[in-house]
């Protein structure tokens, strides 16, 4: 081996070590908060008031019971509310975005291009711009504290539409639609029974993103849901912040936080691969 080659090899090993160290450091940073959360939620309030320690506190189940049965923050109710909103939104958003994308993709009609351009144009308008009018209307018609008001608007999701449209272009052969038509299948059945199954991967990815987005959503729900029994998880978590923490059971607080992020973490640990693929292959096409 020549001297030059040897030098290059050493350099490469050095670079590689640095790269791995850098990646490890970043991964550790990302996991740090999660690990801290689990450790802290195992510690009783008096342990947390005492000296700092990262050892397992042994009060995990106690904290879980305390948090679950807390009188002022009804976390089980919040989780059910969040689940209702997030699941329904995810279903509506993916189904109707796929349906709209299919219509624009398959049919030729007069307004086709105008509609496509319109949806693209409204895609980036931040949701807060409609918030003022939305809140005003909700109060005017007495629709505060109605979970459906957070669900139904998700039928129109321009970003999801765009993703579905791109996906259809890459997977749906027109011959398939035409063959089904010759067989006499109705247009609606063609979409539901033939096209939707083909779109399964795209639907799954968008359902996850939509579920997570809705589960974590704080701004709109906090303005609309004022009664305790309708509050979703993020509102309850934010409420903890204004409590007097010097008198609060901090073990319980850590447990509330853990419960709030747990469903998303479970979904993510099962499906992280397809979720990450979804980040690049749609709305942010590389």
């Amino acid at each position: 081996m020549s001297k030059k080659n040897k030098k290059a090899r050493i350099q490469l090993i050095l670079l590689r070590t640095l790269a791995y160290a850098f990646i490890l450091l970043l991964c550790a940073m990302c996991l740090f908060f999660f690990v801290m959360l689990i450790l802290m939620s195992s510690r009783s309030n008096s342990q947390l008031q005492g000296a700092f320690s990262i050892s397992w506190g042994g009060h995990f189940l106690q904290n879980l019971r305390n948090a679950w049965t807390d009188a002022s923050i009804n976390i089980p109710r919040g989780m059910i509310n969040s689940l209702i909103v997030a699941l329904s939104s995810a279903l509506l958003t993916t189904y109707f975005s796929a349906l709209t994308a299919y219509a624009i993709h398959v049919y030729d009609f007069k307004l086709k291009n105008a509609i496509f351009t319109f949806i693209m144009a409204i895609m980036m308008i931040p949701s807060q711009v409609s918030a003022v009018g939305f809140i005003q209307l909700a109060y005017k018609f007495g629709l505060t504290n109605k979970l459906w008001l957070l669900i139904v608007p998700s039928i129109a999701a321009p970003v999801v539409f765009f993703y579905m449209k791109q996906y259809l272009e890459s997977v749906l052969p027109m011959e398939m639609v035409e063959a089904a038509r010759i067989d006499g299948t109705s247009e609606f059945r063609i979409f539901n029974d033939i096209v939707l199954p083909i779109m399964k991967p795209a639907v799954a990815v968008q359902m996850i993103f939509s579920f997570v987005g809705s589960w974590n959503n704080y701004f709109m729900p906090s303005l609309l849901l004022t009664k305790a029994e309708y509050k979703t998880v993020p509102i309850m978590i934010a409420q903890l912040r204004s409590a007097d923490y010097s008198k609060f059971d901090m073990g319980k607080v850590f447990m509330f936080i853990l419960l709030a992020i747990l469903p998303v973490m479970v979904v993510y640990s099962l499906l992280s691969k397809s979720i990450i693929k979804g980040v690049t292959s749609g709305s942010v096409k590389g």
Partner: peptide, 27 residues
């Protein structure tokens, strides 16, 4: 998978966690 994970965490819960860790009597 690990570096993307924080993107999915509920921002209000993450904030509350940071608050719980960094407040006057926190760890």
């Amino acid at each position: 998978s690990i570096i993307y994970m924080p993107n999915l965490i509920m921002a209000s819960a993450f904030s509350m966690l940071v608050f719980a860790l960094f407040n006057n009597i926190g760890p």
